[in-house]
Simulated assay, not measured.
Amino acid sequence: MRIGIDFDNTIACYDGVFHAAALERGLIPADLGRDKNSVRDHLNGSGRKDDFTELQGYVYGARMDLVSPYPGFAEFVAASRKAGHDLFIVSHKTKHPILGPQHDMHAAARGFLTDRALMGPGEAQIAPERVFFELTKEEKVARAKALACEVFIDDLPEILGMSGFPVGMHKVLFDPENQFADKAAQYDRRASWAEIAADFARARV
């Protein structure tokens, strides 16, 4: 089975990262909520929208060392490879930040995958040539179609709802924060990589 996987907020977990990076740069009070939305709302609400935009580039380009894979993702990769599935990472992000230093965010994401032994030539890794970072959502969907993905896993229902994916593709909504209970009828909604691993360990090619 050919399985496509999103990257940001699907593989890479940013819990607490924006808070830590914003504190590091002196942008927020220490007692602010640790989630990304609290940081964004604080900066946007105080007229510092550009600071948040630059913060995103800083995190995605320079501080991926603060980021961890979601629990269970490495085990999912190992189990899926053992079951004979073909895994692809297909995500979208601009290559350089809109504001601030021009970090290569594609290279930073690949470095994250390599440093955590998720990408490489091993039997329990995803091959580098099967990792794609596209510049737009439309190009992401087109890539999934070109790869003939039979399954796609993403944290955003608006991505899974886009036209252009392969006909009949199985769509899995990764929802660890239980934000999209109302989407359960449209997509297979899963709260953890352990759940997803169990699904596909049984679905051998």
Rank of each mutant, 00 (worst) to 15 (best):
G57L: 00
Y58R: 10
V59L: 05
V59E: 10
V59F: 01
V59C: 01
V59S: 03
Y60F: 14
G61L: 11
G61S: 12
A62W: 10
A62T: 02
A62L: 11
R63D: 07
D65M: 01
D65T: 00
L66G: 03
V67A: 14
S68H: 14
S68L: 13
S68A: 15
S68P: 08
S68E: 14
P69E: 12
P69F: 01
P69Q: 00
Y70C: 11
Y70G: 11
P71Y: 07
P71V: 15
P71S: 14
G72T: 04
G72Y: 03
G72A: 03
G72K: 00
F73R: 07
F73T: 00
F73C: 02
F73S: 00
A74N: 07
A74P: 06
A74E: 13
A74Y: 05
A74T: 08
E75T: 14
F76V: 05
V77K: 00
V77A: 04
V77I: 08
A78I: 02
A79E: 06
A79W: 01
S80T: 01
S80H: 01
R81W: 10
K82N: 10
K82A: 15
A83V: 09
A83D: 10
G84S: 08
G84L: 12
H85R: 10
H85K: 06
D86R: 05
L87Y: 00
F88N: 04
I89R: 05
I89Q: 11
I89M: 12
V90R: 12
S91Q: 13
S91K: 09
S91E: 11
S91F: 10
H92A: 14
H92F: 08
H92D: 10
K93W: 14
T94F: 12
T94M: 15
T94E: 14
T94G: 09
K95H: 07
K95C: 05
K95S: 10
K95F: 06
K95Y: 05
H96V: 01
H96P: 00
P97A: 11
P97V: 07
P97E: 13
P97T: 06
P97I: 07
P97N: 13
P97S: 07
I98Y: 06
I98E: 15
I98C: 10
I98T: 14
G100Q: 03
P101V: 06
P101G: 09
Q102T: 03
H103M: 02
H103L: 06
H103W: 15
H103Y: 15
D104A: 05
D104V: 06
M105K: 01
M105T: 04
M105C: 02
A107T: 01
A107C: 06
A107D: 12
A108T: 05
A108V: 00
A109R: 07
A109P: 07
A109S: 12
A109Y: 08
R110W: 13
R110I: 09
G111W: 08
G111M: 09
F112W: 02
F112S: 09
F112L: 04
F112V: 05
L113C: 07
T114S: 09
T114C: 04
T114F: 11
T114G: 06
D115V: 02
D115K: 08
D115R: 11
R116E: 02
R116T: 01
R116Q: 01
A117I: 11
A117P: 10
A117G: 12
